[in-house]
Structure formats: C-alpha cells, structure tokens
C-alpha cells in the first residue's frame, strides 16, 4: 500500500491526531468517557495504521520489539508500584488516599498513575500482538 499516494498522505495526516486523541482520552478519563484501556487501544491503532500503510519494517523501526516489551512490563510495574508506595506511606495496598494524605488529591494522583500504567501496557501489548501476527512468516524464517 506504500505506492498508493492516497493511503500514504491520509496515514501521515491522521497519525498525529489519532495519538493526540488517545492522549486526550487517557488524561481526560476522569471527566468524560475514557481511560487507560481505551486510550491504549487508540494509540496502538495509530501505530498499526502506520505499519499497515508503510510496511511492517517501518513500523518496527518506530517501536522496536525490545522497547515494546519494556513498556509492557513498565505499565504493570507502575500499577503495582503505586500500590506499594501507598503501602510504604502507611496505607493499604492501592489505597491512594495515603499517597498525599488528602482524599481528593491522593485519589486524583493515584488514579492518573494507575490509568497511565494500564494505558502503557495495553498499547504495547496490542502493538506487540499485531507485529507478531503480521511478521509471523518472516520471523520464523529468520
């Protein structure tokens, strides 16, 4: 699909706005529908669009398999880490109020970080799964 100028131009125009929209959904999830799960899928969709139009090789150059795997792990660790920090501050596991001491700010910060962790994990898992499926034959032949 690289040869077709329509696909190429549309993919280039849409790539950044899709990621913008994903970030909006991620960080505005407290006030409107959205959150880490949806944002993760939307951001992954931007990268998948790029990989479909410009080829898998180009997609893997943007996000390498190693970076992807680390992001996957980091997302889960961020989520668990928030729980551990709240324990270290004297609360229960994942008790965000203990993070700052006040209910409103503590819960806000905790939910933001936790959703970020979810978003990172979902983005990188979806992207890794797509790359694995799309490159199945080439990877096996290597």
């Amino acid at each position: 699909m690289k040869q077709n100028p329509v696909f190429r131009v549309v993919a280039k125009i849409l790539f950044a706005p899709i990621i913008m929209f994903g970030l909006y959904v991620q960080f505005h999830g407290d006030y409107s529908p959205g959150g880490g799960f949806q944002a993760g899928v939307i951001i992954a969709a931007a990268f998948i669009l790029h990989a479909i139009v410009f080829g898998l090789q180009a997609g893997r150059e943007i996000v390498s398999a190693r970076v992807n795997l680390w992001m996957m792990v980091f997302g889960v660790l961020l989520y668990g880490g928030v729980g551990v920090v709240s324990m270290a501050k004297g609360g229960l596991f994942l008790d965000y109020t203990a993070l700052t001491g006040s209910v409103a700010t503590g819960q806000h910060i905790g939910i933001l970080l936790v959703e970020l962790g979810v978003g990172l994990t979902v983005t990188s898992v979806m992207l890794a799964v797509f790359h694995a499926f799309a490159g199945f034959v080439e990877d096996r032949a290597k």
């Binding site: 999830g29 006030y31 959205g34 959150g35 989520y79 409103a104 959703e115 994990t121 979902v122």
Partner: peptide
C-alpha cells in the same frame, strides 16, 4: 471530585480487579 464514576470504580474502588485484568492482558 471525579465526575466519571466508571473511572473511579475502575481505578480506585476496584483497583485490585483492574490490576488483575492488566496482568491478564500482559
């Protein structure tokens, strides 16, 4: 002070649940 109740329940009241789901996805 978070208007979207779904987010609150997802991340705060049922944080354990969501941690488990994230690990399943991972």
């Amino acid at each position: 002070h978070i208007p979207n109740v779904v987010t609150t329940v997802l991340a705060s009241y049922r944080g354990f649940d969501t941690l488990g789901e994230t690990i399943v996805v991972f």
